[in-house]
Nucleic acid binder design. Structure first.
Lengths: 183, 183
DNA sequence: CAACATATGGGGTGCCCCTCCGTTTTGTCG
DNA sequence: CGACAAAACGGAGGGGCACCCCATATGTTG
């Protein structure tokens, strides 16, 4: 899972890994991305050294916590790629915004992933989906050709981080940005 | 200054206040809004208790650090209110974005001020200017009437916080948001 | 210049991240 | 099955931070 090598992990390693992820998911949902790592270890019933051995950084832990949520988003993007290019893109951005605004810690994790380039981060997965849908819309001339997927994604990440826990506001800001200010 | 009562402060109080602000300005510019308060106290040559006595919270310190910058912005908004409503608003948002993206810690401070309503925060000053320019543009039908000054400001704060230290990207995201994505 | 309000800062508390290293658990192989 | 090595664990400790207490020092004022 975390280990890229196919080395089979010991059973206690797997057990603790799951306990840590469960505790982390609960506490991140309650306290956000800056939750105390020691509290996660305590809740999981393991020493803090074990947590740090399993997850070399806070970001690495968050990446695994949000893996499933991001995977669902990725599948949703694939569905949307079958329909109308414009509404597909808009729906994607809306659903991404709702998911991020609803999920404490996810905006912070996505933004953090944007700064450390790697292929398997949550940010990279979401980015790939965004690139695909923007390209489709662009080719269909449904959006201005100079609109960049990365800019659009940064905008969504910025908005959701600024409005964490308030999906209506996040959506309102998104549609303002998509429509512009002109009459 | 910080004290709402008109009690005249002792001379050493004023001296230490200035030293703290100078040290804070330098370190915030270097490290951003989450700089260590103890380091600021050390640099200023005072005990950490003194820093906490002068500034009851990190936010209170940041508010004073950025007071001058925000005051300059406020005056600039007044100038812009004399010209064309549409370009005035756009210039205001652009200049605000540039200032915030250039000034480490300012985006975080503005966003934090948005959550704790008070009349004398940096956020409140910037907000007042934004309300005025948006109203002018709205009355002149230069923008859609449902565009809210608060949403626009939140958008700028979100963008500058997400792109701290990178004014070109911040400006690109701003103009994307102002123009929308449609052809 | 004395007395008093005001301000200071060293040191303490509690929390946090992270790592070291002696101990325990696990899987395997004779 | 029992012993052994590799793998994993966790308590403890170093270093850092925010914030507070209280004995001390310092302006100010009459």
């Amino acid at each position: 899972m975390a280990n890229p090598k196919t080395a089979p992990q010991r059973s206690d390693w797997q057990r603790n890994h799951e306990r840590l992820l469960a505790a982390a998911a609960a506490l991140v949902a309650r306290d956000g991305a800056q939750v105390s790592l020691e509290e996660i270890a305590r809740d999981a019933g393991v020493g803090s050294a074990t947590l740090h051995r399993h997850f070399p950084s806070r970001q690495a832990l968050l990446e695994e916590v949000f893996r499933d949520t991001v995977e669902r988003l990725r599948r949703r993007a694939r569905e949307l790629a079958a329909g109308d290019p414009r509404t597909g893109l808009v729906s994607w951005l809306e659903e991404l915004t709702i998911a991020a605004a609803d999920t404490r810690g996810l905006p912070a994790s996505l933004s953090a992933g944007a700064k450390a380039p790697a292929d398997d981060t949550c940010h990279a997965v979401v980015r790939e989906a965004t690139v695909m849908l923007v390209d489709r819309a662009s080719e269909a001339a449904a959006i201005r050709p100079e609109v960049s997927p990365d800019d659009l994604l940064t905008l969504v990440e910025a908005v959701t981080q600024a409005t964490e826990g308030d999906p209506p506001t996040a959506l309102r800001l998104l549609s303002l940005a998509l429509d512009g200010i002109r009459p």
